[in-house]
């Protein structure tokens, strides 16, 4: 070795910071999509590093489905206070109340699809021209071909057949009026990389990721949390279990893992031993093998 050597986390960090700086340089009104999950927390951490000692030169945007775990919102507000960053919140409930979308009802109902409309409205409202998301290519097959800079047409749609080739580190953010980009700075990270980086950088994450006692019930082999808006089907019985989230989404579709992990190191060990992908724990993606792809075409990532 010649002493000029980065480990893979440092190399991924360098790449992501480069991408985030490109976004700030190439676009007029970028925004960082913040979900309160570990990927968006890491992305925000990278953004702070990218512009330090200046403030992050763009706002965060949280699309609140109204079905969040309360811990997620508390965490978000605390993080914004601590860092002095600005987070815009837009509500799916408002989109429903405005009659723009119809909510699914019954057990298994999810607001995941509705988010798309609220998000596109917010992009329109603030004239955002680039929205950074924490999506990773390892999450799902449909994402394996996603670019760092993903072009969306005026309807916010993604055309899998018509993506721009992406070569070297030359990112093409040129666009016409009304078009925008989704940018994925964490494209090359895996779930394991994210956890290791959280450990390496000592990044604070919501308590939901660690073991805690919670009232849960079993549906289609997945443990889900009970909540006032969760309708139970016949035969579904709430029980108390020690669980944690592997990924944080809505209460309605976030599968909980039975786990005793209470530190990032424990989580890393668990991920190393585990044999199920993160998204396997999301009830939502099981609906059809290609559901992610369908949502992506509609504008949700």
């Amino acid at each position: 070795m010649d002493g000029y050597h980065l480990n893979h986390l440092q190399e991924l960090e360098a790449e992501s910071i480069y991408v985030i700086r490109e976004v700030a340089a190439q676009f007029e009104r970028p925004v960082l999509l913040f979900s309160g999950g570990k990927d968006s927390i890491v992305m925000f951490h990278l953004a702070r590093k990218a512009f330090w000692p200046a403030k992050v030169p763009f706002p965060l945007l949280h699309i609140d489905t109204g079905h969040n775990f309360p811990e997620t919102l508390e965490f978000r507000d605390r993080l914004m206070e601590k860092t002095g960053a600005k987070c815009i919140v837009r509500y799916v409930q408002d989109t429903i109340d405005a009659g723009k979308v119809v909510e699914e009802t019954g057990p298994g109902a999810s607001r995941n699809v509705l988010q798309t409309v609220t998000l596109l409205d917010a992009i329109e409202e603030f004239k955002f021209d680039a929205a950074m998301g924490g999506g990773r290519r390892d999450e799902e097959k449909a994402r394996a071909k996603e670019r760092f800079f993903s072009h969306r047409d005026v309807f916010g749609q993604w055309d899998p057949k018509n993506q721009r080739p992406e070569l070297w580190n030359l990112f093409n953010g040129r666009k016409k009026l009304g078009e925008h980009f989704r940018v994925f700075p964490l494209s090359n990270w895996t779930e394991m990389d994210v956890w290791q980086y959280i450990y390496m950088e000592n990044i604070e994450i919501p308590s939901l990721y660690f073991t805690h006692e919670r009232e849960v019930f079993l549906r289609d082999g997945v443990w889900l949390a009970t909540a006032p808006f969760m309708e139970l089907k016949e035969g579904e019985v709430p029980v108390k279990k020690r669980v944690r989230c592997r990924t944080i989404g809505d209460i309605t579709n976030t599968g909980l893992t039975l786990s005793e992990a209470n530190s990032v190191l424990d989580i890393i060990k668990e991920v190393a031993a585990t044999r199920t992908t993160e998204r396997g724990a999301r009830a939502d993606d099981k609906r059809s093998e290609t559901s992610m792809e369908d949502r992506k075409k509609e504008g949700y990532f």
Partner: peptide, 16 residues
């Protein structure tokens, strides 16, 4: 990868 490709039985792009 993607469904359209699966239907055609071919892959059409760079996948990571």
């Amino acid at each position: 990868g993607l469904r359209a490709e699966r239907e055609q039985g071919i892959t059409i792009d760079v996948a990571y």
